[in-house]
Design a binder for these strands. Structure first.
Lengths: 225, 225
DNA sequence: ACAAAATATGATAAATTTGTGAACAATACC
DNA sequence: GGTATTGTTCACAAATTTATCATATTTTGT
């Protein structure tokens, strides 16, 4: 399996280097950004980022803002680094969907341990990596999908699309958003191509096809209940 | 959706009660156990436990042992409570597959926030902010509306209109204003169109339909009381 | 109570959006 | 190079939403 990408955002280069070193030692691939804007750019360019480490105090766009922006686009796990351990800050963080909250100064070992823990929990690391949604089971590493324990064949794009749907279940997804995430962000094709893929996917999924709901005038939504 | 079960394991009944109270307030169903053996028993009896909160220091079987036992059986998220904040302990915890590590004394609010966060991540909790107005609940990201906990289907325009009303509740809105905000600003149609949409909305909202008040000679106003 | 004005309602027409099948293009596979 | 598979585009039918209009009902001012 290829290395997992981690995006480290901090304005202090010393801090970035420290974190980078420890994570690299643990065989992660680290991408750095020195401010919020750069972070968002790098994130768009690296859609397969597995986790983001975010400093709260930064110029231009602070950590909370970056967090909010990221959450509009993605469920990627977020670890916040903060100087002061204010309880209200921490609560705000959890509301925004922060996954972990580490106050400076921290032990790099702990940081790495928490990163490991989050990624393990997010099933990004090894562990068969099986996603379930209703009667659909997906083995991501084996690129295998089953419905009611019956294996089905999906093409590459169909598979990607289904995974994206399931990773964002319960969320209404516009065609634009789907294009940006499942296709490359610089894809300029017709958004209606999604319709065709959805049709095929629904067909191949059989009974589970109805999990993909059409939201008229808006896009699609996956719901397994 | 039914309540999520949380198993709280601690030998101090005072602590159990404290945690229990806060979690119950947040609408979780709490099961208590006062030592490791009882914890395992209760866990076997309640296979649908969504999360375990575990004190480290306990007689008979300490927290680490319980953790190990649980991990043999299940991937249920585990939160460890510990008196001392020893780094080595924490590292051991992560190795054992502990999801979160909170050192005493802790703020109950933080505990609840972390529990929420873990369950949200585990996809047990529907994510996304929810707007409420009287008996109406709106999950904007899911593009879903419920009245008295019963989901209802709204068309795109109806949804937009309702959101606009609720975002401006208590404020009298002229037709012109509504057109400019819910329709495109360059829409030159009949303002009477709104009447029709309001009618449909009131209809679909059922009992909550009366929240949309007519202000004669002026427009409409949303009020949920 | 009555007329005038405004809103509610129901039916219907118009406009949009989506589903679908087929053609075409790109890519991977022998 | 040829063939099979996958991905994209397009056109048209089907589905759904939205706008319009005529009519009924309600409100207001006198």
């Amino acid at each position: 399996m290829s290395k997992l990408k981690i995006l480290v955002v901090d304005d202090e280069s010393r801090m970035r280097k420290l974190v980078n070193d420890f994570l690299t030692k643990k065989d992660y691939l680290v991408i750095e950004a020195s401010d919020g804007e750069e972070a968002m750019e790098k994130f768009y360019m690296n859609r397969d980022v597995a986790l983001v480490i975010l400093d709260v105090m930064m110029p231009k766009m602070n950590g909370w803002q970056v967090c909010r922006e990221l959450r509009k686009e993605s469920k990627v796990p977020i670890v916040m680094l903060t100087a002061k351990a204010e309880e209200s800050d921490e609560l705000l963080g959890f509301e925004l969907g922060v996954d972990e909250y580490i106050s400076k100064p921290f032990s790099p070992k702990i940081l790495v341990a928490r990163v490991d823990s989050i990624l393990r929990r997010a099933n990004k690391i090894e562990s068969g990596e099986i996603m379930e949604a209703g009667m659909i089971k997906i083995n991501k590493s084996a690129h295998q999908v089953s419905v009611e324990n019956q294996n089905i064949d999906l093409s590459y794009k169909e598979f990607e699309l289904l995974v994206y749907f399931i990773e964002n279940k319960g969320i209404a997804l516009s065609r634009e958003k789907i294009l940006n995430n499942v296709w490359n962000y610089d894809y300029f094709g017709d958004a209606r191509t999604i319709d065709t893929h959805v049709k095929k996917l629904r067909n191949k999924l059989g009974n589970a096809g109805s999990y993909i709901k059409t939201i008229w005038g808006m896009g699609y939504k996956f719901e397994s209940e």
